[in-house]
Simulated assay, not measured.
Amino acid sequence: MSQVLNLWQKTTNLPVVGEALGTRAFSLVFGQKAPYFFSIRPRFTVIEPNHAELVIKDRRRVHNHIGTVHAIALCNGLEAAMGALAEASIPKDKRWIPKGMEVAYTAKAAGDVTCIAQTDPEQWVSDNPDLPVRVRGELADGTVVIEGEIRLWVTSKS
């Protein structure tokens, strides 16, 4: 099991801490490992192989000039979700690095945004090093405010 998935399970399953504090603890540790992501203060809510979710709270620090969640903050959230998914999904004998991102902004991000990253299990065992990760950001009512793909380069460690 990957370090990220192991840490997620430990922090969210501690009976003394509880799931809400466990997700907060995990999110803080993840932000320390990749400090740039901490700028959006992501709150992870789901981490499992082939699926990760986090929430970007609607607050002034992530706003643009019109008072909605800034496009780059959204991309930062999508990349953080993708990174957690990749770490939870990748076979032990492989490594990954982001290769590119293409997104479309589909609606104003007025509210908390849930950033979602998804893959299919067979993508990780393919011999093709190009691995597309589907990403999207949604408001609480299901409105998609950003969607796209982050391409990874997945190779053998040896």
Rank of each mutant, 00 (worst) to 15 (best):
E138V: 07
L85C: 14
N50L: 03
N50F: 11
T68L: 12
V4L: 11
P35E: 13
G22A: 02
V16T: 15
V17Q: 11
V133N: 11
A104E: 15
A140M: 00
R43M: 02
I66Q: 00
A104R: 13
V29N: 01
F37C: 08
A25T: 11
V103G: 15
T119H: 10
L85W: 09
R61P: 05
T23H: 01
G111E: 02
D112M: 13
V46D: 05
E147R: 11
I66L: 11
E48I: 11
Y36D: 01
W124H: 06
P129Y: 01
A81L: 08
L7I: 08
A52M: 08
V103M: 13
A86C: 15
V125K: 13
D127H: 08
G148K: 05
W8M: 04
G18T: 05
R136W: 11
A86S: 14
M1N: 01
T106K: 09
A117D: 15
S2P: 09
A107H: 09
V125C: 03
L28R: 15
T155M: 01
W96K: 02
K99D: 03
E53M: 10
M1I: 09
G142I: 02
R60T: 07
A52R: 07
V144C: 09
P49L: 10
L152M: 01
G137V: 04
N64R: 06
P91H: 12
D127E: 15
N64H: 06
W8S: 00
L7D: 13
A84T: 14
C115M: 15
D130S: 13
P98N: 05
K92T: 09
V145P: 08
P35A: 10
I90Y: 09
W153R: 03
A109H: 03
A104F: 12
G111M: 02
I97D: 04
